[in-house]
Design a protein around this nucleic acid. Structure first.
Lengths: 233, 233
DNA sequence: AAGTGGTCTAGACCACGCG
DNA sequence: GCGTGGTCTAGACCACTTT
């Protein structure tokens, strides 16, 4: 997959068409099924598309306008899902305590009756400008040692560096709401200025639900790019 | 896949856990590979998640979020992307004319200097309730015959039924804005009630950019579910 | 050690598009 | 008719979790 992607970017398929799957399987010395798995990922990323009976083609738009497609579902979490290019990020810890997991959170994180979670409220800033209020719930059994110092930085980075665990997926619901008084105060909004809300669960690479998060985002900073493809139901 | 989805929605897996893949393959009399393909789609849709060594679990958030109108990663287009379970949809044509494509639209739709596009403004309703203002630009050369009658219904369906072309992908940017006076009037919003904006391009299955669209959605009807996974590059 | 998902294989047969 | 992608099979072996 990596090799084919490279070749596409380096224009090594001048006819905008890939070799057929059976040839690719021979070229790379792998089974056709494996070729299919690889190509299906590229389809998902919008890089190629397949036409039954005709072949597999490179999406010209991907080459012409790579910037447009570059989210590629490959950015996740706060640290890089917002366009922070070179801007200075800040985190202000608003509140932080350990509480018993509510019924709802138990359900979302697959916890038991007597499991505890951190409740973490943070204000995120970019270039001194507050742009997001984040409320997160993390099971203490996943991160038994979480200090305020760590919470001033990216929890995801901490997880990866200190624990070798990666946050690889999230299931988020995006909605829109008028701002409430807390939003207005913390995010410096007027009464008629709204927030975007991203709420959901983050998962570790092994599938463990890791955090329930609710993010209220200043509307000017709320921007979400998505490449949608039709599913066959 | 359909059967399992049904069972999930009808809470027929009370432990939030599916049978293991080998059992499913026996239950349905299919190979384990086929079970995997089916489950992988449900994973992609954020309905379930898998934990190697443990099993396959239902995403509790998915059940919670089965609210009214959803725009899912797996569905596209207006007609079926919003889950309109039994509700009556309406379309009101606000405005409709042919204009030269602006520079920006030329770029987005890969048009030439002197190409023309339809500019189509429509108000969408659900159960008599207006919920979205839609402004679309479509090249006349793709749909030379577009009548107001067609515009009262789904353009995507028309494309598929009359022209045999399918809209299979879109690239959308989601943002949040305070409502303007036009929004307030058409969508029956108060001054401090916002709209969600979905703007982007729709593509045909052969990769042709087909429509530039801007959708302003009543905030109560704006709900976007997304399952993000980190790409392995 | 047993159970569960992850990856991969080598092939069969089907459905679609095109010459 | 032939070449192409689509679907499916029946298994092998690996990696991780739980008992």
């Amino acid at each position: 997959m990596r090799d084919i992607k490279e070749k596409i970017l380096h224009h090594e398929y001048p006819k905008m068409k890939l070799p057929d799957e059976r040839s690719l399987s021979e070229i790379y010395g792998i089974s056709r099924s494996s070729v299919k798995r690889a190509l299906d990922v590229l389809v998902q990323q919008g890089i190629i598309f397949k036409k039954r009976g005709s072949g597999t083609f490179i999406n010209p738009l991907y080459l012409k306008n790579r910037a447009m497609f570059r989210y590629e579902g490959s950015n996740l979490g706060i640290t890089d899902s917002f366009r922070l290019d070179g801007k200075k990020q800040g985190i202000q810890l608003l509140n932080y305590r350990v509480i018993p997991a509510s019924k709802e959170i138990q359900q979302d994180l697959f916890l038991n009756e007597n499991d505890y979670v951190y409740k973490i409220e943070r204000l995120r800033l970019i270039d001194e400008q507050p742009f997001m209020i984040e409320t997160g719930y993390i099971p203490i059994k996943i991160l038994p040692s979480l200090s305020p110092a760590v919470l001033q930085k990216s929890i995801f980075n901490y997880l990866e560096n200190a624990k070798g665990k990666q946050v690889t997926r999230s299931y988020l619901t995006l909605t829109v709401e008028p701002s409430n008084t807390a939003d207005q105060k913390l995010l410096k909004l007027n009464e008629n200025e709204p927030v975007g809300v991203m709420a959901g669960v983050f998962f570790l690479d092994d599938g463990t639900p890791f955090e329930v998060s609710n993010m209220r985002v200043h509307y000017k900073y709320m921007r979400f790019n998505t490449f949608v493809s039709v599913g066959r139901d």
